[in-house]
Write a protein that binds this DNA or RNA. Structure first.
Lengths: 358, 358
DNA sequence: AATGACGGATAAATCGATTTACAGAGTGAG
DNA sequence: CTCACTCTGTAAATCGATTTATCCGTCATT
């Protein structure tokens, strides 16, 4: 296939020649630095337009210690939560005139550390890390080791070195406890599809603490695991076999699933057993999904303010990068909102024939 | 806060000095170019390890016309489909020794064109574009204008300039037609939450063509729109008001929703009207979601081979970049798989009292 | 012994911007 | 009239790698 040779891109020198000034002057004009005669500035702008000049971000960064790039490392890109987080970060970074480089650690701590090191190779001005585990994970360790500028997001609590931005998992989960206990539930299963995540652990703690404070006799079962999907599915199955099989208590009347994956998994198992929600058992999930409002019953869930979190995280990072904030690390807790729908009902006078549902 | 000053990163010259060779030699060794004495290569490797040297990808690219970077532009990052696509691309790119820069056009054609131009600024070796509209959209136009190396993915059909990789939307939709007609349905609503997307239009065509070929008297209603969520919701509502209100036919007995958003929207409206799925009306959706297997009824949907698509797209792009393929553009159609679940039932002897469900 | 070929290594040019150091021009004060 | 100083603008150094042009031995060929 005949391909006419590509015309070489215009460089800053081409612009300089065309405008009849030096490259240094062009550089100044382009970055809005002072001390350039208005007339020359105009000539430069005209030349830029005439040649269709666009700056090479790569060459531009080379000379400086840090580049106008912000790195982001998140555990996955398949979930709506991190997808939205990245979209929000991207938007905010762009508005501030930074480029973004995104990478997903795919829930692997080793990969996470590697990606952080790679961000350092790019000499990013700063990094947003949503760790696989927490602020004690390998990614954060690498940040410290390389003494990078960064902000930690989502699966973290306070840190002694970096600013953190998270949803208020603790308080939101405490509210779920209020909600479920208020409905009369006294035996609840807490299920998490991962235990490595700090967020999940915090949700667990938030629920437990509030529930026990409010109703010391409350019965809380917890099921956490990092195993494969099938193993987890089996664990839930087994749990219900035992819990609903024993005659002593009759098993939990409600489930609080600690992540969207967990909600999915629990829902699937409840369906398999023919347990009706909320008549036979109530369900509240952490992390809202668009689908949750269309199912029957629709799912009561805690929605995280992901857009705000992205905004806050980037603002905090920029403040560090631009040296506006050199003080102690700050911790930002964003309030969540529980969307009450149909999947949770009263727990006291619950129908007891559900055991036959198998 | 006292911060001990950061030690300067080792450069290739530091390595050269430490190994007692020249920078050029180090460069050769590091890129595995031939003609270096084994002893010197060893010295270099030792020096790299001793100094903890890591190459600066930015400086590395500067000298070359193109850089070991691959750009990706997708319509959004919130959806599981593009999330998974990006994850797949990232993985494949990395295996081939390329960096990836991802950006989301947020369903805006203007932004899309801008992002493509920006990829060109980075002098990427190649670009993967999942366009908002199709191969005739503004992003693709920009690719052509800048004469970039690229591969088009997902919302495209054949192109005269670029290789394309898509799910076989046409055939998969035709199979849905076979499936629904085979169940006895003779009046089907096709609903799409966007009409700008080539993929949605192809799905529509695939269904229609097969359905009409097989059963000329089939009654197909189509509802496509690019409006806001609320406007669309209203349109669907109105459609059912009319379709189920008239006494002539009794309205559609099945819905084929052309995207996951569409499935969500239809499901929500069916629920609102109290129409039972599949007893009152059947539903098949294009694009599978994890949640669809856990709802009751579970949703029959067409699953797209997103991992394979990512793999193929990147392979095609690399073949172009590395000059292994200089022939005519190739079109890659990946087969989809319909996951038959519970949301579609027989259409002939459907209960007719559903109109009371309002 | 002279010429060529070749393996192996290097000094220096290069990529495209930024930054530094410095040079003229004009201005105002002493 | 000169010194000090501000304004503008430029040449050149710089960033960290890659590539090019060369160079130096060594060995084979005539």
């Amino acid at each position: 296939m005949p391909r006419e040779e590509k015309p070489r891109r215009a460089t800053i020198h081409d612009v300089a020649r065309h405008a009849g000034v030096s490259a240094a002057t062009v550089s100044k004009v382009l970055r809005g630095v002072s001390s350039v005669k208005a007339e020359n500035a105009d000539r430069v702008h005209a030349a830029v337009k005439a040649l269709g000049y666009r700056m090479d971000p790569l060459a531009s960064g080379l000379r400086n210690e840090y580049r106008r790039i912000i790195g982001a490392v998140v555990p996955d890109l398949e979930s709506a939560f991190f997808g939205a987080l990245v979209a929000g970060l991207e938007d905010a970074a762009e508005r501030a005139g930074y480029h973004m480089i995104v990478s997903s650690s795919r829930e692997s701590e080793e990969r996470e550390a590697d990606l952080v090191a790679r961000m350092n190779d790019w000499r990013v001005a700063g990094t947003i890390l949503a760790p696989v585990r927490s602020e004690r994970g390998r990614g954060a360790a690498m940040l410290r080791e390389l003494d990078m500028t960064a902000v930690l997001v989502d699966r973290v609590s306070a840190d002694d070195r970096y600013d953190t931005v998270t949803a208020d998992n603790f308080e939101a989960s405490a509210e779920v406890a209020d909600f479920l206990l208020g409905l009369g539930h006294r035996h609840v299963l807490l299920h998490g599809a991962t235990q490595i995540s700090k967020a999940v652990r915090t949700r667990l703690a938030g629920f437990s603490k509030r529930a026990k404070a409010r109703e010391p006799g409350v019965h809380i079962d917890t099921l956490l695991s990092d195993d494969d999907l099938e193993v987890q599915r089996e664990a839930v199955r087994e749990y219900f076999d035992v819990a609903l099989g024993e005659n002593t208590q009759g098993g939990p009347t409600a489930v609080f699933s600690l992540s969207q994956h967990s909600t999915l998994l629990v829902l699937s198992e409840l369906g398999r057993r023919g347990l009706r929600v909320p008549q036979d058992i109530s369900l509240v999930g952490f992390d809202d999904g668009e689908w949750m409002q269309t199912t029957w019953p629709s799912i009561t869930a805690v929605a995280q303010p992901v857009a705000v979190m992205a905004e806050r995280a980037l603002a905090a990072l920029l403040a560090r990068i631009e040296g506006e904030n050199t003080g102690f690390p700050v911790q930002c807790l964003e309030p969540c909102k529980m969307l009450v729908r149909q999947s949770a009902g009263p727990g006291e006078e619950m129908s007891r024939q559900r055991r036959g549902g198998r």
